[in-house]
Computed example of a mutant assay.
Amino acid sequence: MRIELGPRVRGSLLGSCRFQCNVELAERTSKRLFKLEPTKVGNYVLLADVYAEANMWDEFNQQFKELHALLLTLSNDMKEKGYVPQTKVVLYDLDEKEKERIVLARPQRKN
């Protein structure tokens, strides 16, 4: 009888892949984990860490872009549901949009 691994076990397995530098197992594990927890940012960071540990910088950059896209989606969803960023914690002399970008950890767009 095959037992289906839950997200906690898969997350632990993905984390251990970094220390073992096992890219193949990390990729297989993360595919299922991303289906189970598509909005859990930490899982994407773990896979990016595996790529970085293996000096696979092209894959790392690809994963980094996906992570930023997910963060942008999550921050937009939060705002749609009524979240108001607390920009007063940003002590720099910036306009409100820039302060909001900092609070929401959005990457700066290049024009």
Results as ranks from 00 to 15, higher is better:
residue 64 F to Y: 11
residue 104 L to G: 03
residue 79 K to V: 13
residue 90 V to N: 03
residue 104 L to T: 01
residue 85 P to V: 11
residue 100 E to T: 14
residue 98 E to M: 02
residue 100 E to H: 09
residue 68 H to V: 01
residue 92 Y to S: 13
residue 87 T to F: 04
residue 75 S to T: 14
residue 65 K to M: 06
residue 93 D to C: 04
residue 73 T to N: 10
residue 66 E to T: 02
residue 100 E to D: 10
residue 81 K to E: 14
residue 72 L to P: 06
residue 79 K to G: 06
residue 99 K to Y: 01
residue 85 P to W: 13
residue 91 L to F: 00
residue 81 K to W: 03
residue 104 L to D: 09
residue 79 K to D: 02
residue 74 L to W: 14
residue 70 L to R: 05
residue 95 D to N: 08
residue 99 K to T: 04
residue 73 T to R: 11
residue 97 K to S: 11
residue 94 L to D: 07
residue 102 I to W: 10
residue 80 E to F: 12
residue 71 L to F: 09
residue 76 N to S: 15
residue 103 V to Q: 08
residue 94 L to E: 01
residue 95 D to L: 03
residue 96 E to H: 08
residue 69 A to D: 08
residue 83 Y to A: 07
residue 89 V to Y: 08
residue 72 L to H: 13
residue 99 K to N: 02
residue 84 V to K: 06
residue 64 F to M: 15
residue 77 D to A: 15
residue 79 K to A: 05
residue 85 P to H: 12
residue 103 V to D: 08
residue 97 K to G: 03
residue 76 N to A: 14
residue 99 K to V: 00
residue 102 I to E: 07
residue 78 M to G: 11
residue 93 D to H: 07
residue 70 L to D: 01
residue 95 D to Q: 04
residue 65 K to R: 07
residue 93 D to M: 01
residue 89 V to T: 10
residue 104 L to N: 06
residue 64 F to K: 14
residue 103 V to T: 10
residue 82 G to Q: 11
residue 65 K to E: 08
residue 63 Q to F: 06
residue 78 M to F: 15
residue 79 K to I: 14
residue 92 Y to P: 02
residue 104 L to R: 07
residue 65 K to W: 00
residue 72 L to F: 10
residue 66 E to P: 00
residue 80 E to N: 11
residue 70 L to N: 03
residue 99 K to E: 00
residue 79 K to M: 14
residue 79 K to W: 15
residue 76 N to C: 14
residue 82 G to I: 10
residue 89 V to F: 07
residue 100 E to L: 04
residue 91 L to V: 06
residue 88 K to L: 05
residue 95 D to F: 02
residue 89 V to K: 15
residue 84 V to P: 05
residue 87 T to I: 14
residue 64 F to N: 06
residue 76 N to L: 15
residue 77 D to C: 14
residue 84 V to D: 08
residue 65 K to Q: 02
residue 100 E to R: 07
residue 84 V to Y: 01
residue 83 Y to L: 11
